[in-house]
Amino acid sequence: MKGFTYHEPNSIGDAVNLLNDNGARASLIAGGTDLVIKMKQGKSEPEHVISLQSIPGINEIKYSGEELRIGSMVTHRAIEQSKIIRDKFSLLADAVDNLGSVQVRNLATIGGNICNGAPSADTVGPLMALDAVLLFEGPEGERSIPITEFFHGPGKTAQAANEILKEIVIHDLPPGSCSRYIKYTRRKAMDLPLLGIALVLVSDGAEDVCKEARIGLTLAAPTPIRATKTEEYVAGKPLRSSAMWDEAGNIAVNESSPRTSFRTTSAYRKKIIQALLPRAAFEAIRRLSEQQRKG
């Protein structure tokens, strides 16, 4: 690893200034689980490394009853152990349950997972389905970007070089909502998804019709996507119809454009979308039934 100067600012403003002063020569470090590897491999050789760990206020999970605010420095482990997230935003808990190892989850942060722009990032599919909004701090002040507009390509995002992600804001889900994230991997643990399916469904309650569906797919295209055509198809259809979900799977396959890599083929990723979209839906619906039973 090349040498660098380590900074540990105590405020977001100081961090922004350091970043602004050093431009491309600086890198932010959150949990470090990606950056340290990139620096070891010589893929990243910053002269300044700015740690966010001593900045107050960005490592908390706050829930107001209307919105959930997750600080960018919140670790995956903290999300995994958050009762409110498991109860109300269960697909986000799904995303971290099998992300790396306990050791990695103790270090790695949600902010890092998002800002790296990796197509395989586990929290991103769920955050897309949750319509999360990313709150950045820059020299000009705050700026918010919907996560659905954040990813421009593998490793490319809308984040400016002198901006720091502070918070992820998620609006509460309407009553009758349920969710699920399925990470499909070759190996059970310590693996990247070959495909990620995140799904939020809203039931109208009485008629058991799907009022709204939000479907985030990772590795189904060069960047994480929302399967909007599938969402349109599902809206207004009977929630528990397997035929409907099978057709939804076909539509999702058609609106995806997964790539072939040494990890797997485009064709196989499509198979997985087709097979797992209905399963994700029914697992979400099962959660809804359980909630309803509990009352």
Binding site: R186, R187, K188, A189, M190, D191, L192, F262, R263
Partner: peptide
């Protein structure tokens, strides 16, 4: 079920434990 050294024109594509998959505990 999963182990394979993959190469492209003789260059190993998966020289790490992430992409050369030995079983983990749950496997």
């Amino acid at each position: 079920l999963m182990e394979e050294l993959k190469a492209d024109q003789g260059k190993i594509l998966n020289p790490n434990f992430l992409d050369y998959k030995i079983l983990t505990f749950p496997d």
